[in-house]
Simulated assay, not measured.
Amino acid sequence: MPPAAVAGDGYVPSARRLEREAFKRRRTRRATAVAALSTLVTAAVLYLVVVNSPGWERTRETFFDPAYARKALPEVLEGLWLNLRLLAVCGACVLVLGMLLAVARTLRGPAFFPLRALATAYTDFFRGLPLIINLLIVVFGVPALRLQGVTTDPVVLGGVALTLTYSAYVAEVFRAGIESVHPSQRAAARSLGLSHRKTLRYVVLPQAVRRVVPPLLNDLVSLQKDTGLVSIAGAVDAVYAAQIIASRDFNYTPYIVAGLIFVALTIPMTRFTDWVTARMDRRRAQGGTV
C-alpha cells in the first residue's frame, strides 16, 4: 500500500481510508435507524398494552388528569425551591464532612487511633442506618430533648439528617480515592521534603478527588431525590405540596407531576455524570492525567 500523497501542506487520505470511513458512517446510520425503529415498536407495544388494560380509564382519571396537573404544577414548583436549596446546602456540607472523615480514616500512626476509630464508627453506623429512620430520629427526637438554643425547624433538622447519612457514603468514596493513589507518590513527595500534611494536600488529595468525581456525582444525584423525604417532618417541599393537593381531591396526578419534575432534574445530572466518566476513561486509556 503506497503512502498517501501530500499536496502542499494538505493531507490527502488514501482511497482505502476513505472507503473505511464511508463504511463506518453507513454502519452508524444503519445502527441508528435500527435503534430508532426498535424503540418506536417497543413504545407502541407498551402503549397498546397499557391503554387496552381493563382499568386504564380509571387509572388515567386518577393519575394522569391534565386538569389536576395544571392545578398542581405551580404549588409543586414552589415546593421544589425548598428541595433545590436543601440540595445546595446539604451537598456542600456532605462534601466537606465526607472529606474530613476520609482524611481521618487514612491518618497513620498510633496517636491517631482514637480519631480513626471514631471516623470508622461514624461511617459504619450511618451507612447501616436507614435514611428514613435517621430522619425520624433527628426530626422528632432532637425537639423532644428541649435543648436551649437548638432549632426545631423541620427543614434544618431534615437537612442535618441528610448530611449525616450522605457524608458517611461520600467519606467512603473519598477514602477509596485516597487509597487508590500509589504509595510511590507519597514517597516521592516526602523525599522532596514535603511534610505529611503538605503531601496529603498537594499530592494525594488532588489525584484522589479527580478519580472519584463520577461516584461523587452519583451520590449527589441520589441526594437530590432524597431531599423529598423531608416532607415526613411537615416541610412543604415538592412532594408534600403534591400530597396536600392529592388529599384534597383524592386524585394522585400531583404525585406524577412531582415525580416527573424530579426525573427532569435528575436526567441532566446523570448524563453529566456519564460524560465525566467517559471523558476520564478516555484520558486514562490515552495515558493522560486522571
Rank of each mutant, 00 (worst) to 15 (best):
P3R: 11
V12T: 14
P13N: 06
R16W: 13
L18T: 12
E21M: 14
A22N: 11
A33C: 08
V34Y: 08
L40G: 15
V41N: 00
A43N: 01
Y47N: 10
E57P: 05
R58F: 11
E61K: 12
A67M: 07
R70L: 15
P74V: 10
E75A: 15
L77Q: 06
E78V: 10
E78R: 15
E78Q: 14
N83W: 03
L84R: 05
L86C: 06
L86E: 00
G91L: 04
A92V: 15
V96I: 15
L100R: 03
L101Y: 01
V103Q: 00
A104M: 10
R105P: 05
A117W: 12
D124V: 12
D124Y: 10
L129G: 03
I133F: 15
F140K: 04
F140N: 08
G141I: 10
P143Y: 04
A144P: 08
L145D: 03
L147V: 09
V150C: 06
D153H: 04
V155C: 09
V155Q: 12
L157S: 01
A161Q: 02
A168N: 01
G177W: 02
E179H: 06
P183S: 03
A187T: 14
A189F: 08
R190P: 04
R190C: 08
T199E: 07
P214D: 04
S222R: 10
K225V: 14
G228R: 01
L229F: 11
I232G: 01
V236R: 09
A238D: 01
P254R: 05
P254F: 07
Y255E: 02
L260H: 09
T266H: 06
I267Y: 10
M269V: 13
M280E: 11
G288K: 12
G288E: 14
